[in-house]
């Protein structure tokens, strides 16, 4: 096993997911299999090669930093599970 139970619970916490006991077992097994397969990239001859983050050549695309009003605020807020005074509502944090 490459990944321990503690590790997967830590990862799930980082990803803001709760895992049930049977999910922990299943994902551990899956993760292990997938990582075992993925380890073949260690055989790839990548010495001196840079990284590629995207396949297109353009790097930075600039535009003016201007405030634009999104006209349909109501349609946007329509998707909020909870809202108040035209704002998304979340539980008290402080």
């Amino acid at each position: 096993m490459q990944v321990s139970k503690e590790q997967i619970l830590h990862i799930a916490n980082l990803a803001r997911l709760n895992l049930k006991e049977d999910e922990v077992e299943e994902y551990l097994k899956n993760l292990d299999e997938i990582l075992n397969f993925a380890n073949i990239i260690n055989n790839a001859p990548t010495e001196d090669l840079g990284i590629t983050i995207g396949s297109n050549e353009e790097k930075n695309v600039f535009r003016k930093d201007e405030v634009k009003i999104f006209e349909d605020r109501d349609a946007l807020l329509e998707n909020a599970p909870s809202k108040e005074n035209n704002m998304f509502k979340v539980p008290k944090i402080i």
Partner: peptide, 21 residues
């Protein structure tokens, strides 16, 4: 999240980006 997490980023994510090249 695992391949991006501290300690595994270089071994998986960075290496994968090199393989992409």
């Amino acid at each position: 999240t695992y391949v991006l997490s501290s300690g595994y980023y270089d071994a998986y994510y960075k290496k994968a980006q090199q393989v992409r090249t």
